[in-house]
Design a protein around this nucleic acid. Structure first.
Length: 257
DNA sequence: ATGACTAATAGCATTAGA
């Protein structure tokens, strides 16, 4: 079974690329982020025509997450995280699909640091960790996949000094990510490539793609039961080179059925 | 320190992204 996460940076702007990628790579489960669309603007018919059932949590203009399943309708478990009744941003959706629990996340960027956006990021990570621990306590095979907006290690970025002051690799962001790993989650791509050097994002600006000036912020975290089934992991880098591509590349794991 | 790209917005300049 192939499970992928993909920050599409606008599902309507990206629709031809998204459908093409689904058709070419045939993932069984997909978590999408940055739909940048209200629910009534999401192209349900095109996704279904490509062979996928889907649920989503949309928002006009920004954010927005979805879970797709090939030939199946995901069964929604929860949308949004507990712990902040004032939070109206669409960044979390969770479902049961193919016997797995799957959460799709779009973790706040947090720039600039310091400031309210960074505080929101850390608060959101605490709330995510609480939900993640509750999922682990259920002892179902589970995965939390999405755009974490965290560069976990210095070898996950083309040049650590270039991003040193960024919220993506702030020590507090990294500590909050590590805390989830310490709870028992396995970083699927890191397990496959322990030395780093694999990117999932390349900025549109300053020729970052051409210079391979990228970093790794899209992650798939596997519960212990699912980590035991991990076969492979990778990044669909070729699609990042195409016309009208997202600035992220899809990132995936395969697990034994 | 700044800008460079891209997407969306009842938009034609601003916000947000990372």
């Amino acid at each position: 079974m192939r499970i992928a996460t993909y920050n599409v940076n606008g599902i309507r702007a990206r629709l031809p690329r998204l459908i093409e990628w689904l058709t070419e790579t045939q993932p069984d489960i997909v978590c999408l982020q940055e739909l940048k669309s209200a629910e009534d603007g999401i192209p349900r018919a095109d996704i279904e025509a490509a062979g996928y059932g889907a649920i989503w949590h949309g928002q006009k203009g920004f954010n927005g997450v979805a879970i797709l399943a090939r030939g199946e309708q995901p069964m929604e478990v929860q949308r949004g995280l507990d712990g902040d009744p004032d939070d109206e941003q669409s960044r979390y959706i969770e479902a049961g699909v193919f016997g797995l629990r799957v959460a799709g996340i779009y973790l706040p960027n947090g720039n600039p640091h310091p400031g309210p956006k960074f505080d929101y990021k850390l608060g959101w990570m605490e709330r995510l960790r609480a939900r993640a621990r509750a999922i682990l306590a259920e002892e179902v095979p589970a995965l939390i996949a999405g755009d974490y907006n965290v560069i976990p290690h210095d070898d996950d970025v083309f040049r650590a000094s270039a991003m040193a002051d960024d919220a993506l690799m702030h020590p507090q962001s990294r500590a909050a990510y590590r805390a989830m790993l310490s709870d028992g989650w396995t970083d699927g791509l890191r397990a496959r490539y322990p030395a780093g050097g694999v990117w999932t994002y390349w900025d549109y600006q300053a020729g970052a793609w051409q210079r391979d000036a990228g970093f790794r912020i899209d992650h798939l975290l596997l519960s212990p039961a699912l980590a035991d089934r991990l076969c492979d992991a990778g990044v669909d880098k070729g699609h990042r080179a195409r016309e009208k591509a997202s600035d992220h590349a899809a990132t995936w794991v395969t697990v034994r059925d």
